[in-house]
């Protein structure tokens, strides 16, 4: 199957395959209220894209997700490092991580609604969902750093920054990248779930909620498609950003 060796072509074929399945399923059911087809969805998306409300809602959601995700990545990385290097920090902070991980996202949303303005809830929820993922990922990656290389660095009197730049960062980067990617998916899902419950004035989640109320299935699919496209774009940007600050060849 030589044709599958060419990546763009492979992607196109796979996308067409699944679009075909979707189209056939919608055609077979023939009830747009249950399952709108891809053509209706794209039409709805074009219709939505002509309104200011669409761009404002998408923009607000994007900002909320990026803010929540970014703060979680920075703080998660810092906490991961702190817990790796200081046993006492691990003893005191690990219960907090366990609680955040175990608490249902809806409980957090309800709780956070009492603390902050409803427009800020989604960012806060995204932050809370991503934090333990990056934290755990960073801590695990630091623990997995090659002991032999660290000993070599100590023997050759590497400064703290040299160790960070030439031993820790290249070792940690793939794990950090993987946990950030996982976190990004969670940031979208949890942020939009928070919008559905908190109902801020503008937001994809608020619009998703409205589609449920008014039984607008094409719009529901169109908003979902928007989120998927934005998520993919953000993931690509993140990959490029991390690639730029990579250590040497790593």
């Amino acid at each position: 199957m030589k044709i599958f060796a060419i990546k763009p072509l492979r992607c196109l074929i796979v996308a067409l395959f699944w679009l075909g399945i979707w189209y056939l399923a919608a055609y077979r059911i023939n009830l747009p209220l249950i399952l709108p087809g891809p053509v209706d969805t794209v039409k709805a998306l074009i219709r939505l894209a002509q309104t200011l409300d669409f761009w404002k809602s998408t923009g607000y959601t994007l900002v909320r997700v990026i803010v929540g995700f970014s703060v979680a990545v920075i703080l998660g990385a810092a906490l991961g490092a702190l817990c790796h290097f200081f046993a006492l920090a691990e003893i005191f902070l690990s219960p907090l991580r366990t609680i955040i991980k175990a608490t249902p996202v809806t409980s957090f949303i309800m709780l956070v609604l009492l603390w902050v303005a409803k427009g800020q809830v989604p960012a806060f929820i995204s932050f809370l969902m991503v934090l333990p993922i990056v934290w755990t990922g960073m801590q695990g990656a630091l623990s997995a750093t090659d002991r032999n290389l660290l000993e070599m660095g100590a023997a050759y009197r590497f400064s703290f920054w040299k160790k960070l730049r030439w031993i820790y960062w290249p070792s940690v980067r793939p794990h950090f990248m993987a946990s950030s990617m996982t976190g990004l998916g969670f940031a979208w899902k949890s942020g939009i779930a928070a919008e559905v419950i908190a109902l801020p004035a503008f937001g994809v989640g608020s619009n998703l909620y409205n589609t449920k109320i008014y039984l607008e299935r094409e719009e529901l699919f169109a908003w979902t498609l928007t989120v998927i496209l934005l998520s993919m774009a953000l993931e690509m940007l993140l990959k490029k950003a991390v690639g730029r600050v990579r250590g040497g060849k790593a």
Binding site: E151, A155, Y156, I167, G248, K249
Partner: peptide, 18 residues
């Protein structure tokens, strides 16, 4: 003290010169 380890312990992501 300069130490040559039993294993080479080179940084895989750095060139020989680096």
């Amino acid at each position: 003290i300069s130490f040559l380890f039993q294993e080479d312990r080179l940084l895989p992501w750095a060139t020989a010169e680096k």
